[in-house]
Design a protein around this nucleic acid. Structure first.
Lengths: 197, 197
DNA sequence: TCAAGATGCATACAATCTGTATGTAACTTC
DNA sequence: GAAGTTACATACAGATTGTATGCATCTTGA
């Protein structure tokens, strides 16, 4: 029974405020980078006060973390959607890789996830976020393929880390203007090289 | 003819001051990270004033740039020394890669070159520094091998970028505590996969 | 050799920025 | 509907960055 139409539940206010902050912050972090973006500018763009920011986030890095987390989740969702349609394990790997490259072309993602992310949050935390949001797709895919004997046996974690780094670098290159086919052909050649023959 | 033993040429003073600054800055940037290290702390550790710092460097990032440049040069020197002893093109690649991994275990290098570097200076400038200091060893090595038909023909720049990213990731993993053999075996398997058979 | 200019550096200052403390209104709970 | 919690606004303390200004100490050229 809402007598006053202006009345909003705390839950709603929180959701709205946090969304406004992460949206404004994402735009500014992407445009100017984390270090060059001040909290006064963020709250102005979000139409809230610094009090609200520090009420909802521990500090500026915590707000950045929230932005990056959303980004990882969005990329993971796009990959999952694409991988859903695949049949073989290997197919899932190459299709997933392809989807990853496309997803990473969304403006700002490279900067947030590959440039500022590691410096602000550290590789450790970033990897943790990746595992949370992606459910560790790449690693599990490699493990399946390896267990099934479809690809050579190799140290799983090292392989996943290095392949992931290759995909990241390819995404960065493409975002920078490199030809996507060039990176894809290298990527696929190396992936095929892992397949047992 | 130095009448006064306290008299120092401007060149000497500059060299000494810049060296003190880069040395102190390197230590602090490594220990606490770029963002958490203030210029007051740096100049105190270097026994100079902020005036001296801003006389020799445009800003804090410029000092960081100088530190990173030194680091790249040191790594390149270690790699060149190791690669000198090799015979075949392929051998040079794997030996160079090995030397790179070892060189990157020098404390702080991973943080300076792989974590803070890309965020503060940007991938573009970092790649430029790499090319300057390393004389583009990896790319040229791959080109030779490819021209000689020793490895499969692939887009050169994309291949160099992705392999470089793999090596970086391996170095980071090892610095973080991963087993070096794990990363090396992945690395070598993938390199061997590029060789024509 | 000495005057004029350049270089190296010290100090003080202006403009921010971050995180915290404190107060208040709106919501929730009992 | 009172008591307590949550959401937020405002004010403040501390610290940081880059710049401006001034003064020694070299260096240069006549």
């Amino acid at each position: 029974m809402q007598s006053n139409p202006e009345r909003r539940s705390n839950e709603d206010r929180t959701r709205a405020t946090r969304a406004a902050l992460t949206k404004a912050a994402r735009r500014l972090f992407v445009e100017k980078g984390y270090a060059e973006t001040g909290t006064p500018e963020i709250v102005k763009a979000a139409n809230v006060t610094r009090g609200a920011l520090y009420h909802h986030f521990a500090d500026k890095a915590d707000l950045f973390r929230a932005v990056v987390r959303q980004e990882y989740a969005a990329v993971a969702a796009e990959i999952d959607a694409a991988a859903k349609t695949t049949t073989s394990t290997i197919d899932a790997l190459t299709t997933g890789g392809d989807a990853f490259l496309r997803a990473m072309q969304q403006p700002g993602r490279v900067r947030l996830m590959l440039l500022d992310g590691p410096a602000i949050l550290g590789r450790l935390e970033l990897d943790a976020i990746d595992r949370e949001t992606s459910a560790d797709t790449l690693r599990l895919g490699l493990k399946s393929a390896m267990d099934a004997g479809e690809i050579r046996p190799l140290p799983l974690d090292a392989l996943a880390a290095q392949l992931s780094a290759m995909f990241d670098r390819a995404a960065l290159g493409v975002a920078k203007g490199d030809a996507a086919e060039d990176h894809l052909s290298v990527l696929n050649t190396i992936l095929r090289g892992l397949v047992r023959h």
